[in-house]
């Protein structure tokens, strides 16, 4: 065998270089992988998502009222599936945040946190509607010890009232404080995106009730849905992204004082 030193080094270097090419780099030789980025720029997976345009919200609370009645949450109980928070920045530099009764009776006075604020003392203010974020990685679901809460195939997080033992782990584990105990069933309760309505082609009750076009629901990957159009063309933000839950309620006009 005529294996010279030169040949050995040459072949050695070649095989070292060959092993260094990552497998992922070979993807470009697959025609279907190439085509997929051209034909389907977005995934075809069905996934519900929500958009909240905070710049339009007037804080009338019709969504909260409608939600409570639609979803059989006792009206006078101090728990709600959706609520509106008011953020007011005063000229002194104080940030006042309140949501009296979850805003089911509407904001009718300039009295954040009970302070009787004069109009000229407010620097800026706005309303932020909140609801369950139906996370892609819901931390509330992970901690359920009995499998009573789950994520459906289309991304909605639900609670099995018959299976829930009422331990409250999920309530303390939601970074958005979107869960509570149902005062009648004594089980964990949360927003369902009105799963009974959206599955029938209707809109969620709060979306229907909003006269100002603040709330929008739709399929995340459906190019005809308003949600898709907003997320793909405008600057949206999510609440508390640092928790890594991948929330699916997208906000327009979110300020840094919102928590």
């Amino acid at each position: 065998m005529d294996l010279t030193r030169r040949k050995l080094l040459k072949m050695g270097m070649l095989s070292v270089c060959g092993t260094m090419i990552p497998l992922g780099a070979l993807e470009i030789f697959k025609p279907e992988a190439l085509a997929s980025s051209l034909v389907h720029p977005y995934s075809q997976k069905k996934r519900w998502a929500f958009v909240v345009d905070t710049t339009k919200c007037v804080g009338c609370g019709m969504c909260v009222k409608t939600c409570k009645l639609e979803n059989e949450i006792p009206f006078d109980a101090e728990v709600q599936r959706t609520w509106i928070e008011r953020y007011v920045l005063t000229k002194k530099g104080d940030v006042l945040i309140d949501s009296p009764h979850g805003d089911r009776y509407g904001f009718t006075k300039n009295d954040p946190e009970g302070h009787d604020l004069k109009d000229e003392d407010t620097l800026k203010g706005f309303f932020v509607p909140k609801l369950c974020n139906h996370c892609e990685k819901p931390s509330c679901v992970q901690v359920c010890p009995v499998g009573a809460t789950y994520k459906t195939d289309d991304g909605v997080v639900l609670v099995d009232r018959k299976w829930c033992i009422g331990c409250g782990y999920c309530i303390t584990n939601c970074p958005y404080f979107a869960r509570f105990f149902h005062p009648v069933f004594n089980t964990a309760e949360k927003c369902t995106f009105c799963y009974h309505r959206i599955s029938k082609g209707l809109k969620s009750a709060c979306v229907d009730a909003c006269a100002f076009g603040v709330r929008k629901i739709g399929m995340l990957n459906d190019p005809d849905s308003e949600v898709f159009k907003i997320i793909t063309t405008q600057r949206t933000a999510v609440l508390k992204p640092e928790f890594g839950n991948e929330p699916h309620v997208f906000y327009l006009g979110l300020d840094h004082i919102v928590r």
Binding site: L69, E70, K137, P138, V141, Q142, G147, A148, T149, Y150, K151, T152, D153, L158, D160, R161, K162, W163, T192, Y195, H196, R197, S199, K200, L202, A205
Partner: peptide
Amino acid sequence: YQWHRVGNEKFWRDEFTVK
């Protein structure tokens, strides 16, 4: 995330009434 009683999906989808 999906360890649950599958029949409960039907409750939220079909049995809960639209008001």
